[in-house]
Computed example of a mutant assay.
Amino acid sequence: MRLPFSIPDHDRRLIPDGRLAGIMPWIIAIMLFLTALSAATAIRLGYSVQANSSGLARQATVQLLEPDPAARATDQKRIAAWLERFPGVSAVRAVPESEARQLLEPWIGSAVEDAGIPVPALIDIAFASPPDNAQLRALRIQLVRQTSNARVDTHSSWIAPLLSFLRTILWIALSVLLLLLVATAATVALSVRAALNTHRSTIEIMHMMGSTDLQVARLFQRRIA
């Protein structure tokens, strides 16, 4: 059973060629592999940039810089309850002090607990949608009215350099993908020209017998594809 895209026998006898003959098909195969690899890298980087930017843009942390432990714990509960009623906030979590101390241990070791250094009370906030500058400004203004020792840090500002680096790598991957596509197309064009030059005498005889350029081109279409 002949496949619909296979080259007919009479066309193969008219323009004979060997499968995988020469180095050109292998060059095209390598370039297509590199193109697929670049495309996969670009897609993965694009997904990572989108996922990280959208997820971190909706998160923020409130720090309560109160040196008194009792007052700090009281302010943490009160501010957490107030934040739950703030417009646009979908989730609020008061970070335990032990967990906050563990976050500092990789930088200053166990000296935080041994020296009795006060650790700011942390409150994690998750917005329903990424807040704009006006919403963050309103949050900071109203938070200062609740307590003067509060500070709001958005997670997107901390990871902005990493996202910028990922976007740069993404554009490089897309540029490499474009260059590989252009190079592959040029290689195929060179392969077509080489095939036409190889069978120049046969094409001239076909023209002498009345064949048109379209008929000659159809002999190479499926072969080159």
Rank of each mutant, 00 (worst) to 15 (best):
I123Q: 02
I108M: 13
V112Y: 12
V92P: 00
L37P: 08
S129L: 12
F127R: 01
V92H: 04
A80M: 05
A71G: 01
E105Y: 11
D75M: 13
V92Q: 00
G46Q: 08
I125L: 15
R78P: 07
A70T: 09
A126H: 00
A115P: 03
V92M: 07
G88Y: 14
E105F: 00
A40L: 10
P96F: 06
V95M: 12
G55Y: 15
F127D: 03
A36P: 00
P96Q: 11
P69L: 15
Q50P: 03
L56N: 09
R93E: 11
A100E: 10
A100P: 02
R93N: 14
G46V: 04
D114K: 14
A71C: 02
S110D: 14
R44W: 15
Q63C: 10
T35K: 00
A115S: 11
S38Q: 04
A60M: 10
T41P: 05
Y47I: 14
A70N: 06
T35I: 00
L104I: 07
D68N: 15
D114Y: 08
L45Y: 04
A57G: 13
F127H: 07
G109W: 14
K77Q: 15
R85T: 11
A57D: 15
G55L: 14
R78D: 04
R58C: 06
A94M: 06
I79P: 06
N52L: 11
W107S: 03
A111S: 14
R58P: 05
V62T: 11
E99S: 08
L83Y: 02
N52G: 01
V49T: 06
A51L: 11
R72I: 00
I79W: 11
P96A: 07
A60R: 09
A57F: 10
L37C: 13
S53E: 15
S110M: 01
S129T: 09
V92S: 00
A121L: 02
P96S: 12
L122C: 11
V49P: 05
E97W: 06
P118H: 02
K77I: 03
S90M: 09
A128M: 10
Q76D: 09
P118I: 05
T61G: 07
A42D: 10
A73L: 14
L45N: 01
S129K: 10
D68R: 13
G109P: 07
A80Y: 04
A36G: 03
S90V: 07
V119D: 00
A39G: 09
A42W: 01
S53C: 10
L122S: 08
I125M: 15
A128N: 05
